[in-house]
Design a protein around this nucleic acid. Structure first.
Lengths: 253, 253
DNA sequence: TATCAAAATCACAAAAATAATGTTGAAAAC
DNA sequence: GTTTTCAACATTATTTTTGTGATTTTGATA
């Protein structure tokens, strides 16, 4: 087990239990306490947990899950399938908006398959991936860099979007409940809204586990989207309101 | 001597002589031919030289010299000294604007020495360098990515600058003639102007070889800048108008 | 065009450099 | 007063860089 795997595992335990003990971790992973100290220090510096005497805790439940470093590796398979479905909505010559998130990063990197394209994004992973690609006009949305999301947000980002117009915006979310879409971070909500406002059509990307969750800020109604792409049929109680609202749901299985 | 130093040295030789021999390089650096092969392969992949049987050449006058990857290699020493002088103008807590260019990239990376700082830039090299630095609030200016300059330009960039205000802007230029500053590219000119407009004070960075040159578009008057930093005293005919205009010139020798 | 020597490439081994972890002891927290 | 944390250094892993020799390719030349 490598360092990053161990840290990932620590985060998993933290999400499950809400807290971890330093001694227990050292014993469990068969490493010294100092190593666990360093893990917790770095994870704290990355802003995904809070170190306390003898261990660490996680604050608001869903917060860490949006950290790109920990999401990037997970469920790559499902992400690839969802990206396939999303790519079907893109035609060469379009102006495409891609938002933050690791799902969006996977999709963004694969946009080269549809070039020539103009890609507008605040997602640093997408910017890095498309920078050197011929046939892609890359418009980076500026803004304040957020290490947590590996993306740019804030007034600059929203101002930039206000002078742009795209054919389609791909927006992802960590929480869908009933017919409403949520996000825990206000500045992220504002940017996603601005993206939807700047695009003729909007597509929501959400893996099945995101259904039946809420977060502090309401981002939009499901009906604000033209298409919704997910990886598995959501549980019945989550799917019912969507069906009732008559929304099209693409299952990328 | 480390790998990158050796590659730097190879590029220097190439610039001076126009061509290098593989055997001679291996002997000179006291490494195996295989190592030189790998150096040349990688430099070729980076697009800064052309490998030929028995050595490598550089095609003067072609895109090499105008490519940022090539410019980034040159005169690092002078750039470091100029960066030192520029850093003296920065105090912790300031809002600093950094423009495109390899000189600016060197300066940008060293801004960590003055943190905490807010750094506003359209320079992709600076963005990459400061992204993960604690104590640096990084505001990326969005815009259309230009591979030639490794930076972002266009309406989005200018719009972003219009809602920002900084203490100081560092602007570099390829051409100064008389008391006027020039640049060959219109969108770059507009961005640099917007940067100067968004900052309380402006500092011009120009290596001595840039004096006595012109380019298509006039960027500004020298008097629009509060400080000018260069690496060597410019030739007398170039210096006279500056002295006459009563401008302060910092020579970072 | 057949041949040969030089050059280039490949695959793997060795060495160097870097990163990760462990240990110890002092400072800080409870 | 004990436990926990932190810092400095030692040790161990891991990765990167370099070297070596076998093999293929290249270009000149008979």
């Amino acid at each position: 087990m490598k360092r990053d795997d161990r840290r990932q595992a620590i985060m998993d335990m933290l999400v499950r239990d809400g807290a971890v003990e330093l001694d227990a971790l050292a014993e469990h992973f068969i490493v010294s306490k100092m190593t666990i100290h360093r893990d917790l220090d770095d994870l704290e510096a990355a802003g995904v947990l809070r170190k306390i005497r003898g261990g660490a805790t996680i604050e608001a439940g869903t917060q860490f899950e949006s950290d790109f470093r920990f999401r990037a590796q997970q469920g790559l398979d499902a992400k690839t399938r969802m990206a396939d479905a999303a790519l079907a909505l893109v035609e060469p010559g379009m102006n495409v908006i891609i938002n933050d998130g690791s799902m969006a990063a996977v999709l963004g990197a694969r946009l080269v398959e549809k070039r020539p394209l103009t890609v507008i994004t605040n997602n640093a992973a997408v910017i890095d991936a498309l920078k050197s690609e011929a046939g892609i006009t890359l418009i980076a949305l500026g803004g304040i860099y957020s290490a947590k999301y590996n993306a740019y947000f804030g007034m600059v980002t929203e101002t930039a979007l206000s002078v742009l117009r795209a054919d389609i915006a791909f927006v992802s979310t960590p929480a869908i409940s009933g017919t409403e879409v949520f996000h825990m971070d206000e500045s992220v909500v504002r940017t996603k809204r601005a993206m939807m406002g700047a695009a003729v059509t909007s597509c929501l990307l959400a893996n099945h586990a995101r259904f039946g969750r809420t977060a502090l800020h309401k981002l939009a109604e499901l009906s604000d989207f033209d298409t919704i792409i997910t990886d598995k049929t959501p549980a019945a109680p989550d799917e019912a309101p969507i069906a009732r609202a008559g929304l099209a749901l693409t299952i990328a299985a």
